[in-house]
Computed example of a mutant assay.
Amino acid sequence: MSSIKQFQVTFDCAEPERVARFWCEVLGYVVPPPPQGFATWDDYTCSQPPEQRDSWFACTDPSGVGPRLFFQRVPEGKVAKNRLHLDVRVGTGLVGEERLATLEAECTRLVALGAVRVRLLPADEENESCIVMQDIEGNEFCLD
């Protein structure tokens, strides 16, 4: 008998809160309430030793369906292509020009948030079009 396990997706980054808030805008996620005993996230941050301040941040799917996203500060910058990336599914069920128009509209919205458009992967015999992008710290993702 198989069991269903919850999981989170963890991002290494330089500025956890900034990247988390970007992904909240992309996915419609929310910042959870601060830890128990703190009125605000600022209160929590100020309570931490200086070396731990701003070292992580998280966001969640308000519906509870999607995974929690966790962002942790690391000292090194991104130097190679991601081995794992998110596909942001905005064109599901759409084909051809209608799909492309939907992808382009979402791409425009995300570029305004600081994302970078990398390239369009046009439809072929097996796959529909998608747009390769980067988040505000250069992590690749696809609009699919």
Rank of each mutant, 00 (worst) to 15 (best):
M1P: 03
S2Y: 01
S2N: 08
I4Q: 01
I4E: 02
Q6A: 14
F7C: 04
F7G: 02
Q8M: 09
V9S: 07
T10N: 09
T10Y: 02
D12M: 12
E15C: 11
E15S: 13
R18W: 04
V19I: 11
V19D: 00
A20H: 05
A20Q: 09
R21V: 04
F22I: 07
W23K: 03
E25M: 02
E25W: 00
L27H: 00
V30Y: 01
V31N: 00
V31K: 04
P33H: 07
P33D: 14
T40W: 07
T40C: 09
W41R: 10
D43I: 07
Y44V: 08
Y44D: 06
T45I: 11
C46K: 15
Q48H: 03
Q48F: 08
P49I: 15
Q52Y: 11
S55P: 03
W56M: 15
C59P: 00
T60E: 07
D61S: 09
S63Q: 04
G64V: 00
G66P: 00
F71E: 07
F71T: 08
Q72G: 06
Q72K: 12
Q72D: 07
R73S: 03
P75N: 12
E76L: 13
E76G: 07
G77P: 02
G77F: 02
G77C: 02
G77A: 15
K78E: 03
V79N: 08
V79L: 12
A80I: 08
N82S: 15
L84V: 14
L84N: 10
L86C: 04
V88I: 13
V88M: 02
R89E: 06
V90R: 06
G91N: 10
G91F: 06
G91C: 09
G93M: 01
L94C: 01
V95G: 00
A101E: 12
A101K: 15
T102N: 10
E104V: 12
T108E: 15
A112H: 10
A115M: 11
V116F: 12
V116W: 09
V118D: 15
V118L: 15
D124H: 06
E126Y: 13
V132G: 04
M133I: 08
Q134N: 14
G138L: 15
N139E: 09
E140G: 05
F141E: 00
F141Q: 02
F141P: 02
C142E: 05
L143F: 08
